[in-house]
Design a protein around this nucleic acid. Structure first.
Length: 753
DNA sequence: AGCACGCCGACT
DNA sequence: GTCGGCGTGCTC
């Protein structure tokens, strides 16, 4: 063996997502692996009696300072290497989401199972025929083994085929190992890149002519192109704020073309999986076969195959959902995050990262530009743009100059006063009748986000709220009480409205089914299609939508399931039956989400050359959210909302963390939650950090799959995330290292929920 | 995570 | 007397 100071050394993260092991381990790179082992390589290393997968973080020439025993890297994956930009994300993201580096690396690794190295027995170089004969005389069993190895190709055999079925090393083999006649090596099965035959066929030639851009679009494109041409690495992201139908996609396309012409690749992130093929089709018409789609409907084989193609630089434009932000494109020049406000960028089962933030961080490591776009940016995003963290580009007009749809607000309190107890207002009915006469189509939304009903006074529109939290209370059937999901305040359902003393207290929450029934009673013989979770088949929502698209029914009733990506030219009326339902969900983002949803829904009316009408039914017509939707006034909405956030100390003026405790024994879950609460309080006190702690309270969904859920919300009343993160990380550390058998309760921390 | 070492109960 | 339970500790 060579002297230590002439070999190369690697810092390796092993594939065990556990906090105690979440640090680099040092391994020697044996000469046999030459200079192939580089940062970003997937390797196999000995780790306590077994061989584990790992990834090389750094490679260096100096032997480690602290002398000790260091093992050799046993094998490496020849098929890929993570780029420097992705590698740089590993410690950052692990810290960001309070996870481990192994967790992050798993997200970046090729999809599907990793290669499995096998143990091989190799005859040492110097062993000749004579020596084997000699051993044959001394120990026939050892001689036999040596004979078989000598005859094997390359004088080596799989451990399992040499030593029969008994898993244990036989005594004879042990002896040979000790004598240095044979050695054990880990060998990977031969690697070949996956087949491409499963790829969907694609036209190689762009088939659609370039559309003409309006003035605003041209200006935006010019700004972006000028920035792409600059060579500075630290490019501040663009926020492309354009009203629905303003032609944001065309801007993306032009920006992508520019990046491609500079020899760099483009990542295009889209929120909804269902949207991906549609967007893919459109982009393929413009870019040809260089477009690669990564939607969730792909089989693992195909995803693997795409992944390797991307890593070899064979796809110039990669389009996909959240997880595509980790696509291994080698020379990334542009990342587009379409509909940046969509919550689907944030919800992830295990690691709770936000694709928009990952995109921005990744881009900063490879000098790429990021464009995030939306008609209704997240409040926090727009606030950052106002502060100057993003550069803002505005599209205030629709691409072809079409007018925005007319939005009417119907006051349902007045309807009630006039004796209409149905779900459909008089003006809504009238508008529907009109569409039926004109043979146009109507979409009705019953926008009931969330799971449980809220309680409202039918006369004055007052919603019962928590006295401590300025959010609405949620009615729980169990116990027939109202709960606050933030601070666990509880009260009985009031007999009278606390505002107007009326007794018309109602549990709100009629579903799409009732709408369907009502419509059929009102318009006998008219076909009504319904689309909600109860109707959705395995093929998803497509069949129903296609039926509607063929104009086989004049009316479609659905949940927000159908709010996205619809484009039916015959639809000229969109009705929202309970436009305020999602306003009262107990979440400080509820109003923001309502605005986004309603704006999006409103954009569905009158897409082609017919003008559209939108009717919003509500119990609080004067609410600033609905007013802003009516006037298509995002700016005004933002001003109101940001003011309220500031007053109440919600993000972006503070940082929130949510800790979810789950377990099958309710009392134990509660106990752990209490323990954490105390520990957090203690840590905050010691480090003098201004933390507010709400709860623990039962989670909005108190029991899921027989697991009880308690929730703790922690607020840091200042802007930086760091103190909050370190306190939570310390508390978890302390909690995990307590002696005794751990309780069967899982704690999940989400920062910026 | 998962493997070894170690110190206490019920067994051929 | 040993086999084996799982609490504790460590991993290049």
């Amino acid at each position: 063996m060579k002297a230590d100071d002439s070999c190369r050394w690697a810092q390796v993260i092993v594939d065990i997502p556990h906090r105690d092991i979440d640090r680099p381990f040092t391994y020697r790179i044996p000469e046999t692996l030459g200079h192939s082992v580089l940062p970003g390589c997937e390797v196999w290393v000995p780790f306590q009696q077994r061989t584990l997968r790992g990834w090389v973080l750094h490679v260096h020439d100096q032997p480690p300072e602290n002398r000790g025993h260091f093992s050799n890297i046993e094998a490496f994956h020849p098929g890929y290497r993570l780029g420097e930009d992705l590698l740089a994300l590993v410690p950052w993201l692990a810290r960001e989401v309070l996870g481990t580096m192994a967790d992050v690396l798993r997200l970046m690794a090729p999809p599907g199972p990793s290669l499995k190295p096998a143990k091989w027995v190799k005859l040492s170089e110097s062993i000749g025929k004579e020596q084997i004969d000699l051993w044959q005389g001394i120990d026939p069993e050892c001689g036999q083994l040596l004979q078989r190895l000598f005859r094997a190709p390359r004088k080596q055999m799989k451990f399992s085929s040499l030593v029969e079925k008994s898993k244990k090393t036989s005594p004879s083999l042990e002896r040979l190992l000790e004598a240095g006649l044979v050695e054990l090596v880990q060998r990977l099965p031969p690697f070949r890149f996956p087949e491409e035959k499963d790829l969907e066929p694609s036209e190689g030639i762009p088939s659609v002519a370039e559309p003409t851009l309006n003035q605003e679009q041209v200006a935006a494109v010019q700004t972006i192109i000028a920035d792409l041409e600059k060579s500075h690495r630290d490019k501040k992201p663009f926020l492309l704020h354009g009203v629905t139908g303003s032609g944001k996609t065309e801007i993306y396309i032009q920006a992508a073309k520019k990046a491609l012409s500079m020899g760099r690749q483009v990542l295009f992130l889209v929120p909804e999986i269902a949207l991906t093929p549609q967007m893919g089709r459109r982009l393929r018409e413009r870019f040809g076969s260089d477009v690669l789609l990564l939607h969730s409907g792909l089989t693992e084989k195909v995803r693997r195959s795409h992944w390797y193609r991307i890593s070899r630089g064979e796809a110039s434009l990669v389009i996909g959902p959240r997880s595509a932000v980790f696509a291994p494109v080698p020379n990334l020049g542009l990342i587009i995050v379409d509909e940046e406000h969509e919550p689907s960028y944030h919800q992830e089962n295990d690691l709770k990262y936000h694709a928009r933030e990952v995109a921005i961080e990744r881009a900063s490591h490879c000098g790429a530009l990021v464009i995030i776009g939306s008609a209704t940016p997240a409040i926090e995003t727009y606030y950052k743009a106002m502060e100057g963290s993003y550069r803002i580009l505005r599209l205030t007009e629709r691409a072809q100059g079409q007018p925005m749809p007319v939005v009417d607000i119907v006051d349902m309190r007045a309807e009630l006063a006039e004796g209409n107890r149905g779900m459909l207002s008089a003006s809504m009915l009238q508008a529907i009748e009109e569409r039926l006469r004109r043979r146009e189509q109507t979409i009705l939304y019953l926008n009931r986000r969330g799971f449980s009903t809220f309680v409202i006074c039918r006369e004055c529109g007052t919603v019962i709220t928590c006295p401590h939290c300025s959010i609405s209370l949620v009615y729980h059937r169990a116990g027939d009480q109202m709960h606050c999901h933030y601070c666990n305040f509880r009260r009985d359902v009031p007999r009278q409205c606390p505002q107007c003393t009326s007794k018309s207290i109602r549990y709100f929450g009629a579903g799409t089914q009732r709408v369907e029934e009502e419509l059929q009673a009102l318009f006998p013989g008219i076909a009504v299609l319904r689309m909600d979770r109860d109707v959705a088949t395995e093929e998803g929502i497509e069949p129903v939508l296609e039926e509607f698209g063929r104009e086989e029914a004049p009316i479609l009733v659905g949940t927000q399931m159908i709010a996205k990506g619809l484009d039916f030219p015959k639809v000229t009326l969109v009705g929202v039956l309970a436009a305020d339902a999602s306003l009262h969900v107990s979440d400080f983002r509820a109003v923001e989400r309502t605005y986004q949803l309603l704006s999006q829904v409103a954009g569905r009316a009158g897409r082609a050359n017919r003008s559209g009408q939108v009717i919003l039914q509500t119990y609080c017509p004067e609410h600033y959210c609905l007013q802003a939707v009516q006037n298509h006034n995002y700016e005004g909405f933002f001003q109101r909302e940001i003011e309220i956030r500031q007053q109440l100390g919600y993000p972006p003026f503070s940082r929130l963390a949510r800790i979810l405790f789950t377990g099958t024994e309710d009392s134990l879950v509660r106990m752990v939650a209490d323990t954490w609460t105390e520990m957090i309080r203690e840590h905050a006190r010691k480090s003098v950090v201004p933390l507010d702690i709400w709860g623990p309270a039962t989670a909005p969904v108190a029991k899921v799959e027989d697991k009880y859920r308690w929730m703790l919300t922690v607020r840091l009343a200042q802007r930086g995330n760091e103190p909050l993160r370190s306190i939570l990380s310390n508390v978890r550390q302390d909690y995990d290292s307590r002696r005794g058998r751990p309780l069967p309760v899982i704690a999940t921390i989400t920062l910026d929920p």
